[in-house]
Design a protein around this nucleic acid. Sequence first.
DNA 1: TCATTTACTTATCAAATGATAAGTAAAAGG
DNA 2: CCTTTTACTTATCATTTGATAAGTAAATGA
Lengths: 142, 142
Amino acid sequence: MDKKILFNKCITLLTSVHRVTHELTQNAKSESITPVQYKILEYITVSQPVTPSDISDCQHMSMSNTSRELKKLSEKNLIKKISDTEDRRKQYICLSKDGEALMNEAFAKVELRFLDRIRNASKEDLQEIDRSLDILQTKLFY
Amino acid sequence: MDKKILFNKCITLLTSVHRVTHELTQNAKSESITPVQYKILEYITVSQPVTPSDISDCQHMSMSNTSRELKKLSEKNLIKKISDTEDRRKQYICLSKDGEALMNEAFAKVELRFLDRIRNASKEDLQEIDRSLDILQTKLFY
DNA sequence: TCATTTACTTATCAAATGATAAGTAAAAGG
DNA sequence: CCTTTTACTTATCATTTGATAAGTAAATGA
């Protein structure tokens, strides 16, 4: 196995994944939030509850900027902050009802587009895709 | 095959791909260019020669902003503009020597990190990864 | 030939983002 | 206790990015 060829193949896939991600998600987010805020909400959605520090680490932004964006999301009533009872410096961030509604709507659009993308795939194709997702998830994108 | 489960699995992979892309590329780009300028150079690298319109379409930015960024990249001597001899409104954009050097350096860093990521993979693992990349490229991220 | 379209440029403005510094309050550790 | 560290906040500023409008020059097409 030539690792150089594998590298190029991987780069090609990365490029395609980013293009398809854009196709699946374009205009999915509400216009009332910025791209950064959407990414934060997306992260909260799949990982809640999370602390501001978690967000700062995973979204690669400074604590000060994270704090600012969370404040804005709070003002838009999209998230809830819950103080840790043990360590009162810590906070747990969750989606509010409004935040959940907003993200459900976005995810529904993305899912529709995903289903459209695989609508012509045969049963065998779907099984191959499923297996490939598992392999890449565990062996390459761990 | 439950398409809903497949969708969730796919979203998980997308998230992982974006995270790993960040890990592979962080600090790979020169500090003398902005993220948007790096994305443009990356696109030119794999697709050259390209027109400003191509860049505008593929990078999802307006022609005016594309033009501005290309001007900055020109001023930094990272790209060359070549006029089309047939249609003199058109331009073809290529990397300059400096641009090539800059991108080679960036890609070399990314490749090293990629090789490190798969250094513990067995021969069989690599073959499975290779095959999975092919399948997803053709059947999902086409 | 002359209006229209295409490809790209320039200028300008607002908004989003990144970076830094200084601060608060609570916990941890000697 | 008291110093240090941690978790987070607030304020400020520069830069980047997005969006819009007006323009040039060449090609297209009736």
